[in-house]
Nucleic acid binder design. Structure first.
Length: 559
RNA sequence: GGCCCGGUGGUCAAGCGGCUAAGACACCGCCCUUUCACGGCGGUAACACGGGUUCGAUUCCCGUCCGGGUCACCA
């Protein structure tokens, strides 16, 4: 068979050569050791939590090495594409600090455009590039067309075929039959090809595999070390019948042409690594370094681990926004999972941003970890506790504007007041950690606003109403807003003592029966009256912020 | 089912032939404290199992079991 003739028949319009592409996309001029990485999602939906891992890894590796991090849109499957998904993806990633130097970006008109000289960055716009290499492979006898008639296409879409794929099981007989079928496709003549072409039959291009499933190939993965796989012996599809490449082919061509140095992707790609290595070899490309990173897992209803997928709670990044997690907290949590020594580093460098952390490939986890909201909350509390009141105010109001308009209204009506509230216990070495998410703020501070104030947590009924009233009345009589904290508390103590409550906790504990209660109880009466709850931040400060008028009004209302 | 990857406390994990097997989160006590939060101190809790190799295995090898992934003209 004349392979050159076949190549000409199949790709008559391709005149460019691989050599020309080499000069059009020359090796990048970057310092020694600079890494070129990419995030290459298919625009089939939103970015989910699992997608943050490879993207943050790529971003860190590229930017810490003085390299390039770019975005490539893998839209080779028109059937699955979701309109607007690519734009959403970019915006979401940007919120989490994942910024691209190059690739598909959102232009001024809100639509996707390219930035950088290694584009186009949408695979659907790169068809002619793939065809240059497809033609080369055909000419060298390394790939061949398989024509499919309409009825064969129907068979591919048939229900039983779908069921077979659904079952995810490939029995030995099925494999043998498939192999037999594949081999039969290799037998054709130029005349047959010409006839099909004349007839307008679509074809797929398959690789002519030289692999032997009985032999093995070694592959190196930067996070897993040396791996061994059976050689690929499958004539997998390079070009689909619409002329668009499959992932495998696009990966080889794109990552070579775009000069990617490190391919970072989920471990679900591990089994197809032999295919990719074979392709790079066929194409004469030097393969990139691979990093297959562990999947994030969840526990399913049967108690088994499952890969975190789009529908799961905690998968959609918009959920985090809605719940009120700030991006910094999410990023930090991701870092703790990505590099096992991150937490240690962070404890030693509490004031440095995670971008200063010396990210290390060797510290990456090999096995998939379970997503843990409890840990996320802890990380988040720490992140929020380190913020200034102004930062908290900004974050909180931005969240509330969208998800709690009533609260937002109150917050912004008097920003100074809101910030004063948020300043309680903030700053210093041991800041309060009341907030994990923005949504925690309202239950924490709502009593500062008359609109939200109510007694939700009443005084336990083991106390006499008369005693409570006596305390409140006495407090009202002695309260002076201008007292400092020490004077204020002294007065409370005096009231306690005069009404049969222990002013000193140690004395009370020594002999509880000698008293009606303690200073703690007295404080609690006041606290419930003023805040509506049995616990709150420092009462004196609360009263100061509330002001004398509201403080006394609330206490009177309890009588 | 074939192939591939993995298996240290409830979770995330140090470890890389010899350790009383770190640490963080969670949980439980105690302390501090007018409540809460913070902070401090202490505690419960782990090398999946069976064979090797070795003077010695959590660590190396093999098998078993368990978990995950993958077997498309999807990525």
């Amino acid at each position: 068979m004349d392979c050159n003739k076949l190549a000409e028949l199949l790709f008559p319009n391709i005149t460019e050569t691989p050599e020309e592409l080499e000069t059009r996309y020359p090796p990048r001029d970057l310092p020694e050791g600079a890494k070129v990485t990419r995030f290459a999602p298919s625009p089939t939906g939103f970015v989910h939590f699992g997608g943050l891992f490879p993207s943050m890894t790529g971003e860190r590796l590229a930017h810490r090495s003085g390299g390039v991090f770019y975005l490539r849109i893998e839209d080779t499957d028109a059937k699955r594409e979701v309109p607007g998904a690519a734009e959403g993806l970019i915006r979401t990633l940007a919120r989490y600090g994942v910024r691209f130097d190059e690739g598909a970006v959102i232009g001024d008109d809100g639509r996707i455009t390219d930035r950088g000289s290694y584009g186009p960055y949408r695979q659907s716009a790169r068809a002619s590039l793939y065809h240059v290499y497809a033609k080369k492979l055909v000419a060298e006898g390394k790939a061949y067309p398989v024509f499919t008639t309409d009825e064969e296409l129907d068979r591919l879409n048939a229900a039983d075929r779908k069921a077979e794929l659904q079952s995810k099981i490939r029995t030995e007989e099925a494999a043998a039959a498939q192999r037999e079928e594949m081999l039969s496709h290799r037998r054709f003549t130029l005349e047959e090809v010409e006839a099909h072409l004349r007839h307008g039959d679509p074809f797929v291009l398959r690789i002519l595999s030289d692999g032997d499933g009985k032999k093995t190939v070694k592959a190196t993965d930067l996070v897993r070390g040396t791996l061994e796989f059976p050689e690929n012996d499958e004539d997998f599809v390079l070009l689909k019948s619409d002329g668009i490449p499959t992932y495998h082919f696009a990966h080889a061509v794109d990552d070579h042409l775009m000069r990617t140095t490190h391919v970072i992707r989920g471990e679900e790609w591990l089994p197809s690594l032999p295919k990719h290595l074979q392709l790079f070899r066929y194409l004469g490309f030097r393969p990139p370094k691979y990093m297959h990173i562990a999947q994030i897992m969840r526990i399913d209803e049967n108690g088994n681990k499952k890969k975190l997928s789009k529908r799961d709670m905690g998968a959609n990044m918009d959920d985090y926004t809605r719940m009120g997690y700030c991006p910094e907290a999410v990023c930090e949590y991701v870092m703790t999972l990505l590099n096992s020594n991150y937490e240690e580093w962070h404890m030693q460098n509490p004031d440095k941003p995670y971008t200063d952390f010396p990210f290390d490939i060797k510290k990456m986890a090999v096995s998939g970890c379970l997503f843990d909201f409890v840990k996320l909350n802890d990380v988040s509390k720490n992140v929020l506790s380190r913020m200034t009141a102004g930062q908290v105010f900004d974050g909180l109001t931005a969240w509330a504007a969208e998800f709690d308009p009533e609260f937002h209204e109150e917050l912004t009506a008097d920003p100074a007041y809101a910030m004063a509230i948020l300043s309680i216990g903030r700053g210093g070495k041991k800041p309060r950690k009341d907030l994990a998410v923005w949504a925690d703020a309202k239950p924490y501070m709502s009593f500062f606003y008359d609109r939200f104030f109510s007694v939700t947590d009443p005084i336990p009924d083991r106390f006499d109403k008369a005693d409570i009233d006596a305390v409140l009345t006495a407090f009202l009589a002695s309260y002076d807003e201008k007292d400092d904290a020490a004077v204020w508390f002294d007065k409370v103590k005096k009231i306690a003592a005069s009404l049969g409550f222990a002013a000193d906790m140690k004395e009370y504990k020594a002999d509880p029966d000698a008293y009606k209660g303690s200073i703690a109880d007295v404080s609690m009466f006041l606290r419930v009256a003023v805040t509506g709850k049995t616990n709150s931040p420092d009462l004196y400060t609360v009263m100061q912020l509330l002001g004398a008028a509201r403080t006394t009004a609330r206490i009177r209302a309890m009588l």
